[in-house]
Write a protein that binds this DNA or RNA. Structure first.
Lengths: 243, 243
DNA sequence: AAGTGGTCTAGACCACGTG
DNA sequence: ACGTGGTCTAGACCACTTC
């Protein structure tokens, strides 16, 4: 019978949750996998069913697992590459245009700027992968992105032709570099568009743009990707509930 | 022994949670009040302790109640009048300046504009209370607010001298009109500042400003206050975690 | 029919805050 | 010392999905 690892003083449901979280972050369980049922977990670890249930409940609350009544519990597939676009309102969906698109403007090895280095916890000036991307909706540009990735983890990405990249990067990270994004922190601000941003977005220089800094993490909290995006403010809206 | 009201088919912990939520929305329990302990609730309603616990847990998750280990469970005091200011980063706190301040620029009865009317679910053009407010931090303006309140609920507010308003409005609503704000929905956008906004905020016309529309609700979901605020984008930052 | 999560019971002991 | 919430046990029955 496997023993619970970790600090003895911690509650058992915490320790079980930690075990599962770590198994996920180390790739022993991947997004989409089924995790053992609550009964199996309780038997395997010698816990009451309610205790195993509590561990699962916590991971569900954290967004790591997903329950399906009668089916089982699964490692959640994070699907937030749409998140940025979710912030924007789009004039009529399903028009003649072609929905969300992505155009890679550049990819090269470059020296990490300060902000990206701080997020990725590397030395500023370290060589890293840098990509520029333009995202469009219905053929009209909505977002310019500057993306930075640690060279050590994402080197295989340099081998792929950019034409094969497709509209979403995170599945690519998983396929070609075995790096799974679990969650990301975003920070929003607004600025006046500079010349080049304005040109790319098709707006006047000085027009307001939303600036979004995103730091993406793996399941084990490693910082994997830093990006800064500039979006058309006239199409941006963001909703929150506060209490 | 009180019986659980509501749909018989609903789980009991749900029905208990509904009872408590309704008691709060109807003023039988007010923010800051202690609610009965889990043991008391389970005895009063003839439930197992675990079931009462589950009801409380749900309300805690919703932000309606707050638990304090060893002390008890309390109706949460929504304290989000700071929320707007929380979105802004301030150059050194505790400087010579005087922290957050509030200046009422105007208060009168006026006809509801469309956006406010839609939020408050009243006819556009209905007479309502309108207030303009400037919020400052360390004597420097950060936010201009336009506030609309239903006349029927907030009439006593017109009697008070604006000099006595103080920096926070929600406690005032509670004290003078018995209206308690439970939660609010906010929608963020960015715009270029128009002439008057720019002057009030001390920025150049056309400079980017954050626009925040807020609709505040009571515990029973009644729309109580609609406001639109314009904030200096250069001091705005907003953080989210996405999954 | 079998297996899963969802609800519920009726207790136990522990950790924390207050008097 | 007492009452609170926090953890945990060892079951029960139900609702849902799949075969």
């Amino acid at each position: 019978m496997p023993q619970l690892k970790g600090d003895e003083r911690l509650p058992r449901y915490q320790r079980l949750a930690d075990v599962l979280r770590q198994e996920i972050s180390q790739g022993a369980r991947s997004p989409g996998d089924r995790v053992p049922s609550e009964n199996e977990l309780s038997e395997q670890y010698g816990l009451a069913p309610g205790t195993a249930r509590q561990a699962v409940a916590q991971l569900v609350a954290e967004g790591v697992l997903e329950r399906f009544h009668g089916k089982g519990t699964y490692v959640r597939k994070p699907s937030f590459d749409h998140a940025l676009l979710r912030f924007f309102r789009f004039r009529g969906l399903n028009r003649e245009g072609s929905g969300p698109q992505s155009r890679i403007l550049g990819r090269e090895i470059a020296h990490l700027p300060d902000a990206a280095a701080e997020g990725l916890q590397l030395e500023a000036g370290t060589p890293a992968i840098h990509m520029s991307r333009l995202r469009l909706f219905d053929d009209s540009p909505v977002l310019v992105e500057e993306i930075w990735l640690p060279l050590a983890l994402f080197r295989p990405l340099l081998e792929l032709p950019v034409e094969d990249f497709g509209p979403l990067l995170y599945p690519l990270y998983e396929d070609c570099c075995d790096q799974v994004i679990a969650y990301a922190d975003e920070e929003l601000t607004a600025e006046a568009a500079d010349q080049t941003t304005a040109e790319l977005l098709g707006i006047a220089p000085g027009a307001p743009v939303i600036v979004i800094e995103r730091l993406s993490h793996g399941f084990d909290d490693t910082a994997l990707e830093w990006r800064r995006s500039w979006g058309r403010a006239d199409q941006f809206h963001y909703h929150t509930r506060i209490r």
